[in-house]
């Protein structure tokens, strides 16, 4: 699979094709909570990569509770970062060995983004705010100037301009144009907590956000303005948002007591595709990086499912009993 690399030339960005061949792999971060009784400890938890068969999952990273997400450095995919309750765990050898790169001041990370041009710049969202590393994860500092609420769950780097970041917070979506040094609201709302943010690979002006309490929003002008979509889900908590990698018209949403909804016309008409899933409580949604028309959803403790026909028929992808916290893909060396 080909991937894109941004090269900065005199302040302007250009796009070039990276020659190295990488493989995109689906990952899932989960805790096995279904068997959790009389204890606050899940029976198992961690980050797992999908094998070459759908529903084959193998662990990556240490065995530890509260593993929330994994990210690879786009310019050096052997470097992996795991966002977890203990902090951030990093591997520089493709997962053979791991090191806790944060200290006691940092905790409860949810999502990490690595600068695609300069891998030294790493941005980590946590419930305590954003932490930034300028040395590839060796040291971290908080960077919350301008945020109304520090609580944040999502951070994304604008691949066309890596100085620009979007952050999903407890008080809306914020933008930084100076590598996270300061923040300005681009969609402020004290009512909505931004649960998920995603940007289209097919149309880089297209963004989608899932919220707690206000449904979903789309931006078609690179984040400048945001409009609600899927009116039937307007007051729902949406934990899953997905944009198709090559067809900007295709997208999906999933949420609590909402099942999964899909659109094939760029978000104008939404169709309920929850039938066939064992639970209406969906915690994650994504398109498969290797089978582009395959849609994955995770239900709360009732398993992870995939569909090759945009949600008409669902196939069991295992993980029964899991509470999936993230379902996405990362590039890894073949």
């Amino acid at each position: 699979m080909t991937r894109w690399l941004i090269i900065l030339l005199g302040g302007l960005s250009a796009v070039a094709v990276l020659s190295a061949e990488l493989e995109q792999r689906l990952f899932v971060a989960f805790a096995m909570t279904k068997a959790q009784q009389a204890s606050s400890l899940p029976t198992d938890s961690g980050v797992f990569l999908q094998g070459h068969e759908a529903g084959q999952w193998s662990r990556v990273g240490p065995v530890i509770q509260a593993m929330n997400s994994i990210t690879a450095d786009p310019s050096n995919p052997s470097t992996l970062y795991i966002a977890c309750g203990n902090g951030i765990v990093r591997s520089k050898d493709g997962g053979d060995s791991w090191r806790m790169v944060t200290g006691w001041r940092e905790s409860d990370f949810t999502k990490i983004a690595v600068d695609p041009v300069n891998g030294d710049n790493v941005y980590a969202a946590s419930v305590w705010g954003l932490s930034v590393s300028r040395d590839g994860g060796e040291s971290w500092n908080p960077s919350n100037l301008g945020l109304e609420e520090k609580y944040c769950r999502s951070v994304i780097i604008d691949e066309r301009n890596p100085k620009r970041l979007l952050l999903g917070t407890g008080a809306g979506i914020y933008e930084s144009r100076n590598q996270g040094r300061s923040w300005n609201p681009i969609r402020k709302s004290s009512r909505s907590n931004i649960l998920r943010l995603s940007r289209s690979e097919a149309d880089s002006d297209l963004w989608i956000a899932g919220t707690e309490g206000e449904g979903a929003f789309l931006s078609r002008n690179d984040g400048r303005t945001w409009n609600p979509v899927a009116v039937k889900l307007k007051d729902r908590n949406l934990y899953g948002v997905a944009l198709h990698a090559s067809d900007a018209r295709r997208m999906a949403l999933g949420g609590w007591e909402s099942g999964v909804w899909v659109s094939e016309d760029g978000g104008e008409i939404w169709i309920d595709r929850g039938a066939g899933l064992p639970s209406p409580n969906v915690t994650a949604v994504t398109f498969d990086p290797n089978v582009p028309d395959r849609l994955w959803v995770s239900t709360f403790e009732e398993g992870t499912y995939y569909s090759d026909d945009n949600g008409k028929i669902w196939v069991d992808g295992n993980l029964y009993g899991a509470y999936v916290l993230d379902l996405d893909s990362i590039p890894i060396n073949q």
């Binding site: 909570t33 959790q36 009784q37 606050s40 907590n193 649960l195 707690e212 908590n237 709360f300």
Partner: peptide
């Protein structure tokens, strides 16, 4: 998450 936190607390 908002929708799971009470349930998970009550597990222990």
């Amino acid at each position: 998450d908002w929708d799971t936190v009470t349930d998970l607390i009550a597990r222990s």
